[in-house]
Simulated assay, not measured.
Amino acid sequence: MGFTPFFVVYGAEAVLPSDLDYDAPRVKAFDPDRAAEAQQDTVDLLEEACKTTLIRSTHYQQTHRRYHERKIRGRTLEVGNLVLWRTQTTKDKHKLSPPWEGPYTVAEVIRRGTY
């Protein structure tokens, strides 16, 4: 989104302890006399940053939805089709165990997506 989560929540970039220990340039440039003015500027920019983040997030979600609709095809199963069942538990399984059980035959179509 272009902003760190810390900035979006608190309205300022985080100052790390290592920045304080090693006199990072942003720590050296800190001026207590201009701190109140800088804080007000940051608050003004925060609202703009939140709106920008919302716009970028919405754009990402729309792009993801379009990709999903274009690439993912729905499947309709009918009675007699062979299907695999994904195992829900990993009890008594090792990492090379197959994640699927089956094949099983579809016996009844209750409604779309439920077999």
Rank of each mutant, 00 (worst) to 15 (best):
S97Y: 14
T52A: 13
P17F: 03
A24E: 06
S18N: 08
Y10K: 12
Y60T: 09
E78W: 03
K95R: 11
Q61S: 11
K51T: 03
K95H: 09
T89M: 03
G2Y: 08
V79L: 04
G74M: 06
G80Q: 10
E78M: 11
Q88L: 14
V43Q: 03
L77V: 07
A36W: 02
K51I: 08
P17W: 03
T42N: 12
T105R: 15
T63R: 15
L20A: 02
F7Q: 11
A107H: 08
Y10M: 03
T63Q: 15
Q40E: 13
Y67H: 10
A24Q: 02
I72L: 08
I110H: 11
Q40H: 08
V79H: 03
L45A: 15
G113P: 03
P103E: 10
K93S: 08
T76A: 05
A29G: 02
G80F: 06
S57L: 15
T58R: 04
T42L: 12
R111D: 08
R86P: 00
K91I: 11
L54C: 02
V109I: 15
W100D: 06
T105Q: 14
E48S: 08
G102K: 05
V15W: 03
R26F: 14
R111K: 15
L46T: 04
D31Q: 13
G113D: 05
A24R: 05
H94Y: 09
A24D: 10
Q61W: 01
M1C: 08
N81E: 12
F7V: 04
L16V: 00
T90L: 13
A35Q: 10
F3T: 02
